[in-house]
Design a protein around this nucleic acid. Structure first.
Lengths: 216, 216
DNA sequence: ACCTGAACACCGTTCAAGT
DNA sequence: ACCTGAACACCGTTCAAGT
């Protein structure tokens, strides 16, 4: 089964230079190295040592490329606790790794929100595991997706917030005294992470209460 | 004080065709009519009956235009309950009108998240009122901004989610049985709103508990 | 000071032509 | 089937020239 065994049609080699995997890989590397502003069909083609138009033999559009990247990023999200640990513990580790992944890929956030998941196999697999885990945890079927979407909304909003520059709320004291005071009262460190931690703890506590109230 | 009273410098009339207010107004109308994809410097100029390059005498860049729109949209957000009703009631009406406003302007969401508020007067005024209201409600200074940012993250994530098409989670049963089941179990209606309602109720309940635990 | 018209650099995408 | 090179439509932005 070496290439030599396969009958060669006359002419050029049949192995294409490009593939979905190669293109996605190169695109992810490019964003990691130079950010999403540098993710251009031209730049991507240059990185793959190919003409820009060659990409269109494999990917339908730049939007589709972004969906490939999204599915790849979703592979990094940790949903392994679902089904093995309590639902709330699993939800917490899922939310944390979800936020961290998209904090590094925030330009994908607006794309996720409006794209059907059906075409993204790893994404479907992730939601399947999350849904099964919440059901097993005692959540009624008709509320599972509401819980998932609510947590996801908080996570994606937090991922955007994580990209905010320091001092985004800085303002002259005389112009907004109360605001200036509470902004100054935050301890130094990572403000976005502190807000995420507070919010996540709040959401989890609220969900536990809600499920308890349902159970009886 | 009619125009005739003002000494005319010789030559052209001194009243400019454009201004920040006129440009912002026209831009908002354009997005309401045809969506953000149609908000182009050319299209905006056409609507104002002016050459595209004329815009740049008033606005630095398209990004700055988006910030003007953002400040204008923030005027629609209702923070009037802060200071007059209990903090949690005010937080709820604020969150609801915030979500609704940005559901209609979702392309602004990624812009908000990373832009200092100082240059947007109405935005600063809004946060000032929210901060003062939470303080008056008993929240300690060093947690006020964490609460604000956490709620805001949920709100903005929900605003993006509100733009999602129906059936975004639809998937073949054999490929993801648990997911297909819980997706099918949702009652018809507005799925995004149901998730937002559940999430908001959860966040508010969690915050009330947290403040109570702090108070003693 | 403010507007016009022409120009620029760059973008995603298409397509005829080659192998 | 897959790649190249040229071309297209459109984008935000700049700038010399006019008044």
């Amino acid at each position: 089964m070496t290439p030599a065994d396969q009958p060669r049609r006359r002419g050029r080699p049949t192995t294409p230079l490009l593939s979905q995997e190669k293109i996605t890989q190169a695109a992810v590397e490019l964003t990691n190295l130079r950010g999403y502003a540098a993710l251009t069909m031209s730049a991507l083609a240059r990185r793959l040592e190919v003409a820009p138009s060659a990409l269109y033999n494999h990917v339908k559009s730049k939007r589709q490329l972004l969906l490939w990247i999204q599915d790849h990023v979703n592979m990094e999200i940790d949903c392994s606790d679902f089904g093995v640990r309590p639902w709330d513990v699993a939800l917490e580790s899922w939310a944390r790794s979800y936020r961290d992944a998209y904090a590094r890929h925030s330009p994908l956030v607006p794309v996720i929100a409006v794209t059907p998941i059906a075409g993204s196999p790893h994404t479907v697999a992730m939601y399947e595991r999350v849904a099964a885990g919440l059901r097993a945890g005692g959540w009624p079927d008709d509320q599972v997706m509401d819980v998932v979407v609510a947590v996801e909304s908080f996570v994606l909003g937090s991922a955007l917030d994580a990209t905010a520059p320091d001092g985004i709320f800085d303002v002259p004291i005389d112009q907004a005294p109360a605001l200036a005071e509470v902004v100054g009262a935050r301890v130094g460190r990572d403000a976005a992470r502190a807000a995420f931690d507070l919010g996540l703890a709040t959401v989890l506590a609220g969900l536990r209460d809600r499920l308890k109230a349902l159970g009886g």
